[in-house]
Simulated assay, not measured.
Amino acid sequence: MARSKKDLIAQGALTAFAQYGYSDTTMDTIAEVAQVAKGTLYYHFSTKEELFLFVIEKGVKMLIDSVNSAMQDSNLSADERMVCVLDEHLRFFSEHQELCLLLLSFFTGDEQRDQAISTLLAGYFSTMEKYLAELKGQGHLKPDADVRTLASAMFGMTGFTVLRKQFRKEPVDTEETRQTLRSLLHGVLGRKEW
């Protein structure tokens, strides 16, 4: 299926923002990276900020959809689902490294824009926190586990692991990486073996 012009522009913008940062990315740069005419770009997005927020919103929605599918897999035990949620974070960030960079370095210096991005990410965090609170309520997490901290930690530990490996030009989604992250999660689940 052919990608729409809007999708091509969004992908080009994601690449440009990840490569140059928000401040140094221009609409001309985005049009060039997306390989679309400036008129086409402005037809779909009137400002760089509108496009930036569209890219972030689309990315956060993809992340939420991705982890939701793992959370709702009724064929797995609660502990297995939690491990799958972690694995899904690693897979997602590995496959969407430019988005990972953007989500983990979203502060642009503009308070209003940063607040809008924070609001978009709040959807992800509320999804994760609700799920983790349910697990904790069912006794699948240690009683002293703070669900807000755990949600932040899962996002951060997988995201920053991917970024560091990306910058070092190392393989990202490896079994060694997955097992190390699972070991960290193991401490909050209190499970004896994987």
Rank of each mutant, 00 (worst) to 15 (best):
K5D: 08
L90S: 01
V162E: 07
L14P: 00
G139S: 03
T158M: 03
L132F: 13
E49T: 13
G59E: 07
A34Y: 12
L189T: 14
Q72V: 01
R148F: 08
T161H: 03
A10W: 11
E49N: 09
L189K: 15
F107E: 14
V85S: 01
V162A: 03
L104G: 00
G123N: 10
D87R: 13
V67I: 10
L120D: 07
M154P: 02
Q72M: 06
D110E: 12
S118F: 09
R3N: 06
L41G: 04
C100D: 06
A10V: 13
S105G: 15
T15R: 11
G59S: 12
F54E: 12
L41Q: 10
S23E: 14
V67M: 01
S74K: 14
T40D: 01
A13V: 05
A10D: 08
A37L: 06
A2Q: 05
L102T: 03
N75P: 01
S74M: 03
L14H: 04
A13S: 07
D28A: 12
S94R: 13
Q179E: 10
A153N: 03
S69T: 07
P171I: 03
D146M: 01
T40F: 12
E98N: 08
V162I: 05
V188N: 14
D73W: 12
L120V: 13
D24I: 05
L185G: 03
